[in-house]
Amino acid sequence: MQPIICVEGVTKAYNESAPILQDVTFKVEPGQFTAVVGPSGCGKTTLLRCIASLMQPDTGSVLHRGQQFKEPPSWLSIVFQDYNRSLFPWLTVRKNVAFGLRDKNGRAERVLAALRSVGLEHAADLYPWQLSGGMQQRCALARSIVVTPQLLLLDEPFASVDAQTRTDLQDMVMDICRRMSLSALLVTHDIDEAVFMADKVVVLSTRPARVVEEIEINLPRSRDQLSTKESPEFLHLRHRVYTLVRQQAHKSTIVASTDRT
């Protein structure tokens, strides 16, 4: 089976002197949960926007099952970091979730099912700004799964919520991906989160970002916040990813200090 997403030699620069992405290449297999980590500011969000076709790469291509696409496709949806900027404040939770549904048939049922799977059915008629941060992000999550996508793009979705809510949301996302057999691509700077949630971690270098290493996470799929995170395999993988990312971050400080001299 062809990969859900195949990123091939993607390069992107906003201006010529400072490229953001340099020849980025990796794949997301069907049903796979892939995490992309890297030092902060390395261009993770730019990569995600290129994959979603919200912007076009300068060179290279993004293929879906071997096919190119130009506009944001219907088989893909995104959860952004800023829930209070990505939800429509003039729409209720129910209408926010229904926003992406083109098909009128069974719309109400599908919206309700999506709300149920994130535990928000009781808040359907409230406005997003009446909800807590975690609930707002669950609303955004419901909006992205109501269209039954094949690929879920997650752009630092847990970065703006408190620690307790974060772990709850992580469990919820993993559970939803498993039940709906979704492929997912999580962009994060949180290494624990990446190793805990993913089947594969793609480590990016500092700017211009390229893939330093792909690490398979062979932890058993039923993962638990306590036992998984305490297992030696988890700690070992975490150590490996952490070392790679820290090397990159270290490099960027050296580059910065030589730039100054």
């Binding site: 979603a52 995104i78 952004f80 990505s86 003039w90 926003f99 992406g100 269209v147």
Partner: peptide, 29 residues
């Protein structure tokens, strides 16, 4: 109007005209 909302609308497959009336207009109201 929030650019992120325009991105959301693009992901949801709205045409330019639909985006103007369902996102930009209410945001500017």
């Amino acid at each position: 109007a929030e650019e992120l909302l325009t991105d959301v609308a693009r992901i949801c497959g709205l045409s330019t005209a639909e985006r103007l009336f369902r996102v930009t207009l209410p945001a500017a109201s």
